[in-house]
């Protein structure tokens, strides 16, 4: 295990920011921490890097407790939300800075800088001052600066939140590429669920200072452990009902399943449901087009479901339709 946070607790004054947080990240994996703003995501990174000291719990790197080790000796790269380049140094001096501090010899330093300039595609900017390059370029330089001393772990705190969407996507791809090339272990903090679903091997959901779920992106999205995680990852439907002898009975009708008997709630994402124009039993209550997809609210008297379809509107409000549910892979949560 590369990074192993054990039962981390942190309190600022009266407010409990982190309450018994445990996270494991394997060597060469990218874990992202997702949570609402102010949930304590940044605090976790600061505790791993040593900038903030935890109240309780242990930070283990490669199986060694480094809780007592000062920041400057940890050799963990940290990319902040804003680039924070040193304004009195050129791009090259910024990247060189960490190597000078670590007293690398000049041949090795030159080679490393050239390698990073190429890796982050910022060749030709070496002699510029930070104020003379764009925001995206600044963030690339910041990443190069953090990577320069060859850290084994890179922490990234919403590094692309100030960039526009296209650039953001590009940077995400770049990070993935670098991560694979350098076999880096990355902990990535974000509040953008699409970004984290696209980039990560594992996602940890932080809600109210606790890790609600830590799993691969597919499970986080389709098999959330509770309603809070489900809602955090996007719009969703909960259908309460009961399973008896391999059949799920609810207000949407009966569905076959091999789950155990008992009171259960069917969890289903809006895009998993298909609309059947020939069918009956449901009424379209509203519809909203948001470009590439249409969001319908469809329901019976006592139940409303959100359904998303690609393309333009083909159903109208008030129309009688049927709904098609997937036949297998249904996910049930315990309880009503």
């Amino acid at each position: 295990m590369k990074i192993d946070l054990q039962n981390i607790t942190k309190q600022y004054g009266e407010t409990m920011i982190l309450d018994g947080v445990s996270i494991q990240v394997k060597q060469g994996r990218l874990l992202s921490i997702l949570g609402y703003s102010g949930a304590g995501k940044t605090t976790i990174l600061k505790i791993i890097s040593g900038l903030v000291k935890q109240d309780e719990g242990r930070v283990m790197i490669n199986g060694i407790d480094i809780s007592g080790c000062p920041v400057e000796k940890r050799n963990i790269g940290y990319v902040f939300q804003s680039p924070l380049l040193f304004p009195h140094m050129t791009v090259e001096e910024n990247i060189r800075f960490g190597l000078e501090i670590k007293k690398w010899d000049s041949a090795r330093t030159q080679a490393r800088i050239a390698q990073l300039l190429e890796l982050l595609q910022i060749e030709g900017l070496e002699k510029r001052m930070p104020s003379m390059i764009s925001g995206g370029q600044q963030q690339r330089v910041a990443i190069a600066r953090a990577l320069a001393p060859e850290p084994e772990i890179l922490l990234m705190d919403e590094p692309f939140s100030s960039l526009d969407p296209t650039l953001r996507y590009e940077m995400g791809e770049l990070i993935k590429e670098i991560q694979e090339k350098c076999k880096l272990t990355i902990v990535f903090v974000t509040h953008d669920r699409n970004e984290s679903l696209a980039l990560s091997h594992e996602i940890a959901i932080l809600i109210d200072g606790k890790i609600a779920q830590i799993d691969n992106p597919k499970n986080i999205y389709y098999r959330p452990v509770n309603k809070a995680v489900a809602r955090f990852m996007g719009s969703c439907n909960f259908i309460p009902g009961k399973i008896e002898a391999g059949t799920f009975y609810s207000s949407i009708g009966a569905l076959k399943t091999d789950e155990e008997d008992g009171d259960k709630t069917l969890f289903i994402r809006p895009e998993q449901i298909r609309i059947d124009a020939e069918g009956k039993g449901f009424i379209i209550k509203s519809c909203k087009s948001i470009g590439k997809e249409v969001i319908y609210t469809i329901g019976t008297e006592n139940l409303n479901l959100t359904v998303e379809t690609l393309g333009y509107e083909i159903f109208f409000v008030g129309q009688q339709v049927g709904l098609l549910f997937p036949q297998d892979g249904l996910y049930f949560m315990t309880g009503a």
Partner: peptide, 27 residues
């Protein structure tokens, strides 16, 4: 001077003294 900028220096291996002489003092 953004406080985080000093934190960047620390994560790059600066001791409090080098942090002051290399980052704070020039600024």
């Amino acid at each position: 001077i953004n406080r985080d900028m000093e934190d960047v220096g620390k994560t790059l291996g600066c001791t409090p003294i080098t942090l002051f002489s290399r980052i704070v003092l020039p600024l």
